[in-house]
Computed example of a mutant assay.
Amino acid sequence: MKTVIPVDDSSPRPDASVSGPATGDRLWTAIIMAGQRPGPDLMADASNVLYKALIPIAGQTMLERVVRALLASRHVGRVVVMAQSAEALKLALGADLAERDDIAFVASGDGIATSVHAIVGTAGAPWPVLVTTADNALLTGEIIDSFIAGHNGQNVAVGVVERRTMLAAYPDARRTWLKFRGGAYSGANLFALYNEEAKPAVAFWSSVEQDRKKGWKIFARFGPRLLLRALSRTISFKDAMARAGDSLSLRAEPIILPFAEAAIDVDKPADLALVTGILERREG
């Protein structure tokens, strides 16, 4: 039996007149990628659920946790849940969330980036857009607000956590690290798409989606010089993203977050055990 914890609506939700730090009068549209990649999902099977997004952790599904975190941010005005089986996720989410006017459920295709490209900037997902994933179960309103506070007009921004931050809090955590001059970084599954100029980056991501865990293959698409500098760690992450953005005629930067938990998603059983322990301690 799924436990549904009501959203606290005692404080007023922001409206379109509330200003965020980099968006003028506009609140952000948050897109949650809650679909599944082709083939069986071992994490869903191990948890005896049909979809990975519905894996329960400490009394709530991962999808519920991400939705509630987004609603807790004063910068988010609308949430869009995208999945191949959007209606099934809506039914599983619980009436207190599923029937809210500021949450929509949209059917997606098999490709994450292709699906995002098709909806961003439309009436269903107006700019600016924040993209995250349903397995980002440790996401909080505080993390989201910190990410948006770090946004200063970039067409594209990517949330990351520096390795020193992660190891100070969770020395045994195993993540995928992108290594550059000055540090190594792991993604936080937070992406800011500010305006129409961001769409070429989404299209590019669609072409390299299968290499998402291999940073060197992605940088190879921008030419041998940038690849060599990335591999030799003679360029910072910020400069590497800026050069990649230049080739797409847009401004791109990382946003470094001070929260180790921001880079811990649920990709494997060890992640699920770690996240479960963190949430049980956090929630008493």
Rank of each mutant, 00 (worst) to 15 (best):
W177Q: 07
R229Y: 06
V208S: 08
I235K: 12
S207H: 11
S186N: 07
I235F: 02
L228W: 03
G183F: 02
R163Q: 13
T234Y: 01
A203W: 03
A230F: 14
F222R: 06
K213F: 11
G182R: 08
T176K: 10
R233K: 15
G223Q: 04
L178H: 12
W177T: 02
F204D: 07
S206P: 03
R221L: 09
D211K: 06
G183P: 06
K214E: 15
Y170V: 02
E196P: 05
G183Q: 08
S186P: 04
R225G: 00
F191A: 01
A173S: 09
R233H: 08
A201Q: 02
G183C: 04
F180G: 00
S207P: 04
W216H: 15
G187H: 03
K217I: 11
R221N: 13
A169H: 12
A168I: 00
A230K: 05
T165N: 08
V202H: 10
I218P: 06
E196M: 08
K199M: 13
W216A: 14
Y170K: 04
F237I: 02
N195W: 09
P171R: 11
R175E: 01
L178R: 14
F219R: 05
D172V: 00
F191T: 10
E197A: 15
L227I: 00
Q210M: 10
F204N: 01
P224G: 00
R164K: 09
K199H: 07
N189T: 05
A173N: 04
R181W: 06
L226K: 06
G187V: 02
R225C: 00
T234I: 07
Y185R: 12
A192H: 09
P171G: 01
